[in-house]
Nucleic acid binder design. Sequence first.
DNA 1: TTACTGACCAACCGATTGGTCAGTAATGGT
DNA 2: ACCATTACTGACCAATCGGTTGGTCAGTAA
Lengths: 213, 213
Amino acid sequence: MAQINPPLTSGENRSGAAQNILEVAGQLFARSGYDGVSINEIANEAGVSKANIFHHFKSKKGLYLAALNKACSLSAGVLEDNAVESSDDSSDRVRHFLSSHLEVLLQQPLATRLIQRELLDGAEGNGKELAEKVFAETFEKITDLVRDVQAQGAIKSSIDASLLAFLMVGANVFFFENRDLMAHLPGIDFAGAPDRYSEAVFELLAHGFEGQS
Amino acid sequence: MAQINPPLTSGENRSGAAQNILEVAGQLFARSGYDGVSINEIANEAGVSKANIFHHFKSKKGLYLAALNKACSLSAGVLEDNAVESSDDSSDRVRHFLSSHLEVLLQQPLATRLIQRELLDGAEGNGKELAEKVFAETFEKITDLVRDVQAQGAIKSSIDASLLAFLMVGANVFFFENRDLMAHLPGIDFAGAPDRYSEAVFELLAHGFEGQS
DNA sequence: TTACTGACCAACCGATTGGTCAGTAATGGT
DNA sequence: ACCATTACTGACCAATCGGTTGGTCAGTAA
């Protein structure tokens, strides 16, 4: 009958075939969006029958939500491990966050793209709430990071912590979104070099563009 | 027979019904994406028969490209008028660009969203090249603006003009993308206030977050 | 009147959509 | 060895997809 009702946040503990389906679906949904992929396509790509997909997932939307869920927990998990490292002295924590956050985005292009797409399409459904929740949690952690560093005096007290957090995330997401496009733009030398980009963004955000040097 | 081969860049000079179809299609494509809208839906929403759509446009893709084209020329045109105003003294030109560019994005949410979607979906087709071209032209003008101000000494010579331009556009696009989501985020006070956001971004970009105040 | 036009539509086409169902393999506990 | 549960499939379904058909209708020029 209907598959086990999934109270799981992630897409783990599914057996072989189901995981395979989930992964293939994630790739295709990330590439072409929900409406741009058919169950037949997923079935062919995954090497299983169409009916088998409906055996493991109750509907196309269910499969999509499962893939989105997996992407979300994957993205949130890796971010948690990498970006919040607080070992360094405060002045380097912002720099470290910028580069490692961008690295995380680039290491999981599929998950990032799926979430990004959901935030764009999201018609106030389950999926959007999920993506929003992930985004909100991530954003809160980053804001806290900024406030920490701010309390230690390395960031002006007049700066709005949430604005700085917003700008940093935005700079990275915008880089991710347009990484293919940038190659066609004139005069950009940080196109394929996220490290150089992160460093330059940090430098600009830290000291501003006014004054002479 | 087949409609007039359109050597036009914009969607103008189409007569009543065709323009209506084009506008409705633009709205729906912006809302749900190419695959998320059917010809039937467009026909119903526009109050015309499905066949009539194919009378004015040679295919669904043709209709989509026409809508995208219209959005592109619209977006590029308004930007040209508003953002490049060079009357002010150099120190205010960056500030003025930031706010007016964001204003343009917000004033044309449909066009902006359509282009944004095409840049995300774009499978190396005609549409993506179109959107890339618009983006490239816009970006080049902004970079030139930055270089101008830089030549007048109001921006450090050590700053990469294209990076600053990239960051400014990114800050605005990111704001546009997430303007609905921001209301749900904790601690953001510039959610519904693009003017305040623009000012804060300028302040941060100009002076940086380091030091005390 | 006649001839011709573009705008417009209902009905229809084959293909594909998401989804169902009966039936067959495989699996594992007893 | 048996049986119950699960994994899996091909055949099938109604609905919808993008697109085509044959044809009506108002206007306009000869």
